[in-house]
Amino acid sequence: MSETAPLFEARGLTKRFQGLVALSEVSFRLERGAIMGLIGPNGAGKSTLVSLIGGALAPDAGEIRFEGARIDHLPPFRRAHLGIGRTYQLTKPFPGLSVLDNVTLGALFGAGGGERDRAKAREQAREWLDFVGLAPQAAQHADHLGGPDRKRLEFAKVLAMRPKLLLLDEVMAGLTPAETDSAVALIRRIRDRGMTVLVIEHVVSAIRRLSDRLLVLNHGQLIAEGEPAAVLRDPRVVEAYLGRRRA
């Protein structure tokens, strides 16, 4: 728990699925208050990495540290209590509950075990719905929401958990350019509230504007890390995305 330790650190993370190596020796750090982008082509291992950090999967080798302490043996709910919040690529609302109740659940549990009082949690949930612009739909059933609104709900739910580290798994996929702009603005406002954000995207354009730094995964290996502009000029990254240029 030393102050000098980074908020998050992965060391030599490896994950195999029946012989197929999904992630190989992945190491990186996240400093407090940063927006880190994680990009890579389809099948690069991005979602596997999110699942390892969130605890849905266990690594075959390597370690995960959060605020200096190892967390790779902890179940997902314990990591949520420590302050790790994640969204899902395919959104996972509580379908039979109202939008407000979905977000209230985030506030009732989440970091530090959450708010004990249901009335107070509801108040916090309303504020987060306001923050993401979903307040008018508060009373609707979650499974009646359309695509972009489902993503907003996913945001509000995870923000209500008051995480220190936010993992956003392809939250901008399938959004129109205007919706992407508002998502970018939203993520900046989230960082301004002191959260550290790891943004996982398949699409490069939005993430280059948003991220302080970029990580690039390809075939389960980190092939580049650094400033977005520099990373995107890196020949290995270009090759991973566009394929080897034929002379």
Binding site: P76, A80, K92, P93, F94, G96, L105, F109, K157, M161
Partner: peptide
């Protein structure tokens, strides 16, 4: 509400901290 969250989506409930 934790029990209901488990019914609605157990994985999402765990991710939220239940």
């Amino acid at each position: 509400i934790a029990l209901i969250a488990i019914r609605e989506n157990e994985d999402a409930a765990a991710a939220v901290g239940v």
